[in-house]
């Protein structure tokens, strides 16, 4: 893949994460006051589709834009404040999750796209992200580990839907536009 194309693809996925925040694909009403965003779908896709390095770069690029003040997080939030909030751990987990999802996708290149995409998205996009997010809650919100884990449970159903979507999208891109599944190219 040429340098220019890499740059454009990385930017595209960063923009996708932003667009998912502004334009919710599915509307799940507030649960316990916590809005459920589609943005982690973008994180899973970045990893699964772009592979580890490029996927992580796409997420970092998005977070960088948010940090310097672009209001691109769901609900029009942006700026350094979001990294001071209680869910900052989840945000930090995003690029790592994308990286792990990409690495797994690459590692399972012999398996079918839909299965490996689902596994990669679940481990990278849920497992790894929560691995950062829950300790983040423990430290920043002064909760016990159990409390933090319990509080995070509300996100799980939405995340599972996103894993399914990621798998379906990866499969249809692999069929319709195989060159764009960069993680396998």
């Amino acid at each position: 893949m040429s340098n220019d194309r890499t740059l454009v693809y990385v930017s595209l996925y960063a923009a996708l994460i932003a667009a998912l925040g502004l334009f919710p694909l599915f509307h799940i009403p507030f649960l316990g006051g916590v809005p459920i965003t589609a943005q982690t779908l973008g994180v899973m896709l970045a990893g699964v589709m772009l592979g580890p390095m490029r996927g992580a770069f796409a997420v970092v690029l998005f977070l960088f834009l948010v940090a310097i003040g672009a209001p691109l997080l769901a609900g029009g939030r942006g700026g350094l404040g979001v990294f001071a909030g209680p869910s900052a751990g989840f945000l930090i987990g995003w690029p790592v999750g994308a990286f792990v999802a990409g690495a797994l996708m690459r590692g399972m290149r012999r398996r079918s796209v839909i299965v490996s995409a689902a596994i990669s998205a679940a481990i990278g996009g849920i497992g790894v992200v929560y691995l950062f997010g829950i300790p983040g809650l423990v430290v920043l919100a002064d909760l016990s580990f159990g409390q933090a884990a319990l509080g995070s449970l509300v996100y799980i159903p939405g995340d599972l839907i996103k894993v399914a979507l990621t798998a379906v999208i990866a499969e249809s891109v692999a069929r319709g536009l195989p060159g764009a599944l960069v993680s396998r190219a």
């Binding site: 740059l7 930017s11 923009a15 932003a18 672009a70």
Partner: peptide, 21 residues
């Protein structure tokens, strides 16, 4: 490259929303 990538993200976001709509 970073500046270019930032510009592309800001440009792509409304384009993607337009496509989806």
């Amino acid at each position: 490259r970073i500046a270019l990538a930032i510009a592309l993200v800001i440009r792509f976001t409304p384009v993607l929303i337009g496509l989806a709509e």
